[in-house]
Design a protein around this nucleic acid. Sequence first.
DNA 1: CTGTTAGCGCGTTCAG
DNA 2: CTGAACGCGCTAACAG
Lengths: 351, 351
Amino acid sequence: MTHPIERAAPIARVTLQDVAREAGVSLATVDRVLNRRPGVREKTAARVQSAIARLGYRPDPVAARLARKETFRFCFILPTGTNTFMRILEEQVGATADWLLGQRAFIDILHVDVFDAEALATALEGLDPRYSGVAVVALDHPRVRAAIDDLVERGIAVVTLVSDAPTARRLRYVGIDNTAAGRTAATLIGRFSGGRKGTVAVIAGSLALRDHTERQFGFTQVLGSEYPHLTAVLAGESRDDAAQAQRLTESVIAAHPELVGIYNVGAGNRGVAAALEGAGKARDVIFVGHDLTPHSRRFLLRGIMDAVINQDPGHQARSAARILLAHCTGEPIVAEQERIGIDIFVRDNLP
Amino acid sequence: MTHPIERAAPIARVTLQDVAREAGVSLATVDRVLNRRPGVREKTAARVQSAIARLGYRPDPVAARLARKETFRFCFILPTGTNTFMRILEEQVGATADWLLGQRAFIDILHVDVFDAEALATALEGLDPRYSGVAVVALDHPRVRAAIDDLVERGIAVVTLVSDAPTARRLRYVGIDNTAAGRTAATLIGRFSGGRKGTVAVIAGSLALRDHTERQFGFTQVLGSEYPHLTAVLAGESRDDAAQAQRLTESVIAAHPELVGIYNVGAGNRGVAAALEGAGKARDVIFVGHDLTPHSRRFLLRGIMDAVINQDPGHQARSAARILLAHCTGEPIVAEQERIGIDIFVRDNLP
DNA sequence: CTGTTAGCGCGTTCAG
DNA sequence: CTGAACGCGCTAACAG
């Protein structure tokens, strides 16, 4: 066996100094061509470029950030309210803030009513211009879009988090494909139903929320085309409220004795579970919902929920932060690492 | 609305200098108590500690890494062979190497036959002692265990990757819980079967591989207890070979006309798919396997496979690298970020 | 247009 | 046992 270390890359890094020497110029000149700053003749620039290529120079981001005294401040705009998922998200943003401290960046959290587009737009408009980046749980509304575009115009990087505003000029959307998530829910309920005929109730969160309507769209699309023995009925809007979800579930159970499944698009799984248990239907009716929380985890383990579709809040928080930071420092990002996947959890693959 | 920036943390970092001044000592002394090095009196150490606490000092990892001239070299030991998953893993390790370059660390890749414990142990034993860390797709075998413990003894950090050697003194296992993965497969097939009676064939990869036996164990455990209408039969070992998997599938189809599902524990989904299509059973028989590859993705989209259980190779490569690096530099890791989840993919939630 | 120089915050000698 | 001083690789003023 050969020792791989023998054919390894040279252990010493190529530094700016090396390039400068090789090109016969000074540090500053190399720095200028590297950062595309004016004040270098075509000719010397070319000499430097070739030296860079020849030596295989790669700038050291660690040293660069140390020398650059700049620090960054980001604002995370999250919804108010007691929604469990959002609380977990906020917790994770807090944890991320801790990590960012080591990267010379700071996070503030701002709370806004997620159902109120005006309030969200106002918050965005009134944002301190000193922020270098914003992550916002958005709302697809003209004023919000305009406010986001405005921030971008002012040179503030914006990423949308969890909920997107697709036509806005945000740097990126950090979240799942909600249409695909809805399709996934339909496939799970369809496959779990094993050919049973009947209806599937869809409990909407809010029809004004783009991500919720997308989920519904994907769901009905797949259920309609792939599982003709199942018919989707809309049970109403829960507005992410457990009590309301419970009422909706209760009436849908009463109205549809042949109920096969329930897809809860928004929050409030607790309400659905309570209604199902109250009616003694927890085992019979297939129940798929979103977001892994202590509650949904318990429902999964007890067999009340059959699958949970999750979007990892920790991943989303870190991803948003990494993307904003990378944008500010000009460092590249690992695209694949920043993709937010649609996680399916059943009882057996819980974290 | 209040501008959150006003109540924000001070933008200036607390530095070692500040602590030194506050404690009335020099930089070097603070450094000593910080890194727990000898040569400081109890009393002054206490003074420094209190100053650190008072100022809320947090060492700057960026500056630390710059000052420390040390560079690290890691070895990734991967299986030989043409297994698609392992090729993707290797690709991802390569991409990670690129990133590590910016962190003053280098990766070598070493190939060893995964089915040969002696060869793996020999490779581990003969490893260049200059490596500061090793990530190895392990084998739970006494000689391998001993070789790993030996490396650890010599001060080389070891993480097991994808496949574990649980009793070895490795720093950590980077991979999924394979028993849980097997359970998940059983739940999926059980739920998808919709009460149909029949047998489910299990195609083992290699019964000598701990992760494969764990998957089988979890699978039969859940199938036996939760789905009494289904009986698991062992179709044989594919040794991760598609042709062999195809032969096994063909004979199991012939022997069991009432076949409801197939769980392919190891690689070779192509063989299983070919056999199912050849027999015209691709739609009827529920087929669950591991690892998302271009092949399994295609099978999922065509309805030949019903679910794929995945372990993200990119995540595992990056995680192993981050853990080794953090161990070497003494930086903390975000535990939650390093958990490797059991991903379930159906047609609709593919990346 | 180009070169010189002084740090960034910390680790690490080497004297005291 | 403690402190002063230099340098990691790079940026950002300055000079020239």
